[in-house]
């Protein structure tokens, strides 16, 4: 080839062209796929919220089976009766898109002193009422999040956890059934105050029969993820405590 690839000017031009080509390619791909990705994320949130309140297609004891994406919108409309937004002590109960609230933005808002929007969902299944609280926290590598549903007595009815980048086989196991199912039946109250649930290495209760100790068994090799998860649950419970107390004492 006749071009002298060693020249500085060539190097600069090559780099510039490469950046333009790659940049526009990525921008094109991102904007072309954005609607599809957004839709997928919306369905996922609906699936997760429904999962936490026990609306799922689990058939065995081992795997997590959501309501399929083509049916989830219908199921969500059927089971989620109210979507609350709590902001600065005021509860708005007729929101329809509270489940799309970005918790990360609300966290930043709280840090900067603005009143954050706290979403809370009221679900109904087989005549029972569930209060579903979204959570966001930090694992070992990146964000972890989840949903927790409680009944009026503040006993956990179901949880769903997910993570962005926890280690496969270790911290990533927070989204496994054997970990999540342990939370069911635990109370988030302890000694008449709102406490949350600890992820404990000394619980010594692998089948989790002890439901009054506010503890579930930790995962092997995932101490920091587990601690982060417990911190997330407790912080969320603290933040929602006044409103949960209203719900509890309503009847």
């Amino acid at each position: 080839m006749a071009i002298n690839t060693e020249k500085n000017s060539y190097t600069v031009i090559f780099a510039a062209v490469m950046v333009i080509v790659v940049g526009s390619l990525l921008a094109f791909v991102a904007s072309a796929l954005k609607p599809a990705i957004k839709e997928n994320q919306r369905f996922e949130k609906q699936q997760n919220i429904l999962y936490a309140m026990g609306v799922h297609e689990n058939s065995d004891a081992g795997s997590v089976n959501f309501i399929p994406t083509d049916k989830v919108e219908e199921a969500f409309a059927k089971h989620i009766k109210e979507q609350w937004v709590i902001q600065g002590g005021q509860i708005t109960k007729d929101d329809t898109e509270a489940y799309l609230i970005d918790l990360k933005k609300q966290k930043t808002a709280a840090k900067e002193g603005r009143p954050p929007k706290l979403p809370l969902f009221v679900g109904e299944k087989d005549g029972e009422t569930f209060y579903i609280i979204p959570m966001l926290g930090n694992g070992l590598w990146d964000a972890i999040w989840g949903y927790m549903s409680v009944n009026q007595d503040m006993v956990i009815q179901g949880v769903f956890f997910d993570h962005k980048a926890e280690t496969p086989g270790l911290g990533a196991n927070i989204k496994q059934r054997y970990f999540m199912d342990d939370f069911i039946g635990e109370s988030i109250r302890k000694d008449n105050s709102y406490y949350g649930v600890d992820v404990s290495k000394t619980n010594n209760d692998p089948t989790n029969n002890d439901k009054v100790d506010n503890q579930v068994d930790a995962l092997a090799g995932a101490t920091i993820t587990g601690d982060g998860l417990a911190a997330m649950v407790k912080a969320t419970v603290r933040r929602y405590a006044p409103y949960l107390e209203q719900i509890r004492t309503e009847n």
Partner: peptide
Amino acid sequence: IIPSKIRIIVQLVVVAT
């Protein structure tokens, strides 16, 4: 056509893309 001075950067860009 890759300039050898910045070939590592070019390789990284290709993988990342």
